[in-house]
Design a protein around this nucleic acid. Sequence first.
DNA 1: TCTACAGTTTACGTAAACGTAAATAAGCAA
DNA 2: TTGCTTATTTACGTTTACGTAAACTGTAGA
Lengths: 128, 128
Amino acid sequence: MRPGYAINELVREFGVTPRTLRFYEDKGILAPQRRAKVRHYSERDRTRLKLTLRGKRLGLSLEECTEVIDMYEPGQANDTPQLLHLCEKIRQHRSLLIEKMRDIEDTLKAMDEVERSCLEKLLANTAG
Amino acid sequence: MRPGYAINELVREFGVTPRTLRFYEDKGILAPQRRAKVRHYSERDRTRLKLTLRGKRLGLSLEECTEVIDMYEPGQANDTPQLLHLCEKIRQHRSLLIEKMRDIEDTLKAMDEVERSCLEKLLANTAG
DNA sequence: TCTACAGTTTACGTAAACGTAAATAAGCAA
DNA sequence: TTGCTTATTTACGTTTACGTAAACTGTAGA
């Protein structure tokens, strides 16, 4: 039994349903081997799943997730035009991520404000 | 003409369609006044729209967005149980945001790696 | 060998977030 | 007032990302 994962192992580890894994397979995100119809996921599958779920948490669509994953697995992009194209895609995704970062920072600041005034009111309540 | 916004002003400013604004109205996110059937959006509407779109960029559903917005507009939450509940919601949302933050940082690091190896290859190409 | 059970396939269903088309109404310019 | 443009309403359509039910299969244990 080579290192690999049954469907239910990934299901438990990542808190998704089997349906989700099969759906991702349909979409070409995962490509488990079969031993008599039964799926066996590789380390690479697990990584791609992890990256996909991370992308989803950031609001990416599955298609965008695969785009990002494809950037991580440049495979054989060795000629100059392809490398330049990859660089450009990286630049774009990075600026999107930085925008999200700013969004989060702004939201966190605002929430700190709300919490502060909330605590003040609570203090006033216990004092009164 | 009091300070306010026509539907097309918001449409242009935020790059959404009128349909989106009407949809958000249906969902109770926006509540423009009417002058003979025509919508006029207030400053508050504009702010709520802005916060909604920010939330969407972070992968929140519209329902989650309204939850967050409601936190910003605590209105009259003055009794202790409500204030405590608000504090708890803040705590939860904050931890979600921090998780997203980490996701972004991890992704950025990985992308930096990919870019570096990409630039190396490019350099090798021009050198060869 | 029987069976319980985990996994698979097929296919229709669903919720969210709008898109789009058609008919109607309102505002504005000449 | 006519004509054009913009806004509104109604309602069905669409995409994404799965959920869910039904029927089948493979396999490990009693």
